[in-house]
Design a protein around this nucleic acid. Structure first.
Lengths: 182, 182
DNA sequence: ACCTGAACACCGTTCAAGT
DNA sequence: ACCTGAACACCGTTCAAGT
């Protein structure tokens, strides 16, 4: 029943990518994510995970790097600044909304995650600088609003009717804010 | 060394208020809040807490009720709507900022906390209705922004220089938004 | 009513042992 | 290099026992 003690035959071992995939799923199920539960799902010993992703904080960091890297996908030069700003914010809002538990974990240990979303805010700030003199102020407003809205969405996940209209409400609020920017 | 097993003499027992006071302090120290750690700080058995505040979720609920009730203090009729809106938002932002760990715990289990801040949003919505037809939209914008900003403040708590200017930046952003509302 | 103490099913992580 | 297994110091919570 139990696996042999030593190094597994080639191909039998667990992959870093498999761990991250499973971790993201388990995390957002919300029923108590833990290293041990994740290991059990992968039919592996808890300590096996440490070899690939480090400890709990390291695992969360690897997950968030993957999730937020996807927000920056696409060619920045292909859109005009206003459109690119909107694209980045909608995608960022979508990522936070899709993985609220990850977001909460990040906020709970901000020191460990400084810089994870730095690329996104840097690009947004540069783009905002083209449209207004108050770039930093509007970066605050837009990013904070995206965070708050996405988390509020999570808070309403048990009320499908309200949740369904949340995306439309975010887009409406975002366009309202962007219109005030110009 | 150890306390007697039975009911303590009058006045020797622990108070619900003492538990909430200590819990709020311990929670925001950020070094791993737990029922057992809280009990240890109060030099009491973990199970003693259950008698006064229920389980972990019940304790958090009791804490948040206390914290957010303070936001509504003061006489609503003494201020005009715009001023009252600003007062409520600044105070709400202050509460979230002062107790970020509490806020994160609430967002992590939103089902258990539905209604905790309902009084605040209800009053804000009524006030916003006096100033604009898009009351719900602006409620979203202003509350979400307050949440996001307060949590961002927490994320920067290890960078005192930036953190010091965060309050001023929130007030500036808030006034910017409120100006757009009229 | 209010507290203790033992117990159960969990955690994250370290360290040694195995291939 | 990559995995297991035992161990340590923790969790939240239930239940029985005590006054």
């Amino acid at each position: 029943m139990s696996k042999p003690r030593g190094r597994p035959a080639r191909g039998d071992g667990i992959t870093r990518e498999q761990i991250l995939d499973a971790a993201l799923l388990l995390l957002e199920e919300g029923q108590g994510f833990s290293m041990r539960a994740l290991a059990a799902r992968l039919t592996v010993t808890p300590m096996s995970l440490y070899h690939h992703v480090g400890d709990h904080a390291g695992l969360l960091r690897a997950i968030s790097d993957r999730v937020y890297a996807a927000v920056l996908a696409g060619d920045a030069a292909a859109e005009d600044p206003a459109a690119r700003i909107r694209t980045l914010l909608v995608r960022y809002h979508g990522a936070v909304k899709a993985y609220p538990q990850l977001t909460l974990a990040i906020f709970a240990q901000p020191a460990a995650f400084a810089g994870t979303t730095r690329d996104i805010t840097d690009q947004l700030l540069a783009l905002l600088g083209m449209l207004t003199r108050d770039g930093e102020l509007w970066l605050d407003i837009l990013v904070d609003h995206a965070h708050g809205s996405a988390l509020a969405f999570h808070a309403l996940r048990d009320h499908p009717q309200q949740a369904a209209s949340m995306q439309a409400r975010y887009l409406k609020a975002l366009d309202q804010l962007l219109a005030r920017l110009a």
